[in-house]
Amino acid sequence: MKKWFLALILLLSAGYILTQGKSFTLDVPNETNPLLKGESVSITLNKNQIFQGDLLLVNKHYPVREQGVKSDVVTLAQHEELVRGYGLLDPSIQSSKSVMEPFLAMMDAAAQDGVNQFLINSGYRDAKRQNELYLEMGQEYALPAGYSEHNLGLSLDIGSAQEEMSRAPEGRWLQKHAWSHGFILRYPKDKSAVTGIQYEPWHFRYVGLPHSVIMKEKNLTLEEYLEYLKEHPTLSATVEGVEYQIQYYRVSGNMTIQVPAHQQVELSGNNSDGVIVTVRV
């Protein structure tokens, strides 16, 4: 027992964490740019990229830019391959195809745990629909057009066919496991002062791996995580044996950076002043 406890202490001190059976490590390297390992290629970052990607912050201070809206938004009911493991409250509901791929994997995982009464209540909303909702519900319950995450195509309002999400098995399962599939509970109960939005147990936002895992482990909202990246612009994370390198760049004009030549590289702006480069090693 003492040996096991000592081993656990050593793992934790090394940054190794076990959460819901998932392994995760996070390091803040001393290197100025850990992306420069092996053969590299040049890419150019520009101010337009600040307003595109899966990590965009949208709230009352940072509106959606036209280039930030996902280009692959579809009407889900018209794509049978995208409707599996959940129901649609309305056949007109839309979402991004690239968001639905990890969402379906998440639904499959939930079904394996016997949780399978999910409903999608809302997804992507265009400016017209958002404005209608704002006029119908008022500012206490809706945001004006251009200031809602639903205008991006990255968020889903998820319900349960059984009961209210805060009590339903579906809601409890998502709060425990959504992060491991790249999704976050966007408006947690204890973070209203940070997000400016009351607790919404149904509103989940796609940010991708490893960002969702880091946010979960550090108990950070998207607002807090983007500030964390500015304070720690170089991060290295390992999730389930997959290594990721993260680098934040403040972008004020065109700038050239080096990235690995044969690795998966994703770019996302923060909708404010910078671009996050994520490399899957």
Rank of each mutant, 00 (worst) to 15 (best):
K2W: 12
K3C: 06
K3W: 12
F5Y: 12
L11D: 12
L11I: 03
G15E: 11
Y16R: 00
N33H: 02
N33F: 03
L35P: 10
L36D: 14
S42W: 02
Q49V: 09
V58P: 07
S71C: 05
E80V: 04
V83K: 05
Y86S: 05
D90F: 11
P91N: 06
I93L: 02
S98L: 08
F103D: 00
A105L: 12
A111M: 04
D113S: 07
N121Y: 07
N121K: 06
S122W: 01
R125P: 07
D126E: 11
A127D: 04
K128G: 15
N131Y: 14
L135N: 15
G146I: 06
S148V: 11
H150R: 00
L152N: 04
S155W: 00
S160T: 10
Q162G: 08
E164A: 13
G171L: 06
K176Y: 02
W179T: 00
I184K: 01
Y199T: 13
Y206G: 04
L209F: 02
P210Y: 01
M215N: 10
K218L: 15
L222F: 08
E227L: 03
K230A: 08
P233V: 01
P233N: 00
T234C: 03
V242P: 10
Q245W: 03
V251A: 01
S252F: 07
T256S: 10
I257D: 10
I257G: 06
P260V: 08
E266T: 14
E266H: 08
L267H: 05
G269D: 10
G269Y: 01
N270Q: 06
V275M: 02
V277A: 09
V279T: 11
R280T: 13
